[in-house]
Simulated assay, not measured.
Amino acid sequence: MNTDSLWHLLSTQGADFGLKVLAALAAWIVGRWLIALGLKLFSSALKRGAKVDATLAHYLRAILRVALNIGLVLAILDIFGVKTTSFAALLAGAGLAVGTAWGGMLTHFAAGVFMQLQRPFKVGDYVTAGSVTGWVREIGLFNTTLVTLENVRTIVGNNAIVNGVIQNYSALPYRRVDTAVRLANGVDPLEAIARLRGPIAAIANVVAEPVPEIEILAITLEGPQLTVRPYCHNDHYWQVYFDTYKTIVATFAAAGYPLPETPIAPRERFAPYGLGLRS
């Protein structure tokens, strides 16, 4: 293309193309503002009118946001003369490649829809899902966001959650706290159990029903092993867990019990009285 031809093209079609670019930019700015406003109004309407819970409301909002953005893109393409039918034909022609590239994402999307229907958990629940344990912060179109005990934001694909084991620790009104302690040889385990019943039941946030379980778990050459199992709401699990061990230490120290020669040896342990820490 020589200089004369280029100048002729710019002089005849440049202005028109420039106007289209400006119109597209304006449409994008105004469209994004309208989408943000519409999503805000939609969220407010769900909270005030329909009383939809946070989990479903966020999911519906995500679907609406995607649909509105697709509509905005199609409107901008129309400004440049690319009709919706032409765009659909273009997508159909590249269908195989797009389907291959997005196949994994579509499975996560389908899993997200399944999770909304089955509702194995909701935002705010403490769960194990996709081999990750933490609080549910967001259930999105393709993945779910959890915050672990270490305060790490972890994103798990919805399909990995649906295809794995889901444990919801917040679904029931109480949860059992499992602890264990070994007594020194010569200490009467029945006496130790009797000494523990009152102090364990008096720990803050331990529920009255079911009654805490304190039983002989095993008899070994190193000494009898007790299991101490109070119950509490999931929100108080770790407070009750650690307070149980503190109560055992204080109770046995007050009774003058000697230290066991061989403490319980799980992954982690407390030396006093062989207190085994189990996560």
Rank of each mutant, 00 (worst) to 15 (best):
T144M: 04
F17Y: 11
L275H: 01
R182A: 06
L117H: 10
M105S: 13
L25A: 14
Y126H: 12
A75F: 14
G49T: 13
L259D: 07
R175I: 14
N2M: 03
L146W: 03
H8I: 05
L25M: 15
N143Y: 13
G99Q: 08
N158C: 04
F17S: 01
G31V: 15
A180W: 11
R48T: 08
V177T: 01
G49Q: 07
A250Y: 08
T144E: 11
V113S: 02
L19H: 10
A88T: 06
T133C: 07
D4N: 13
F270S: 04
A255C: 01
L60W: 07
N69D: 13
L19C: 13
T144Y: 05
S131F: 11
Q225G: 09
A24I: 04
L68I: 07
W102G: 13
A180Q: 15
L183H: 03
A15H: 12
P230F: 05
A171S: 08
R229E: 04
N234D: 09
N185H: 12
V211D: 09
L146P: 13
G104D: 10
K246R: 14
S44C: 12
Q225C: 12
R197Y: 00
A97N: 12
A97M: 11
M115A: 05
A92P: 06
S5Y: 12
V132W: 04
L221V: 13
A129V: 00
L217Q: 14
L10H: 03
E261S: 12
K246V: 07
R182I: 04
I35A: 03
L190S: 11
G112A: 06
P210S: 05
V156W: 08
F17D: 02
L25D: 08
Y59G: 04
G276C: 00
A27E: 07
I139H: 11
P210D: 08
L74H: 06
S279A: 09
W28P: 01
V165E: 15
F242W: 15
Y241S: 01
H233A: 14
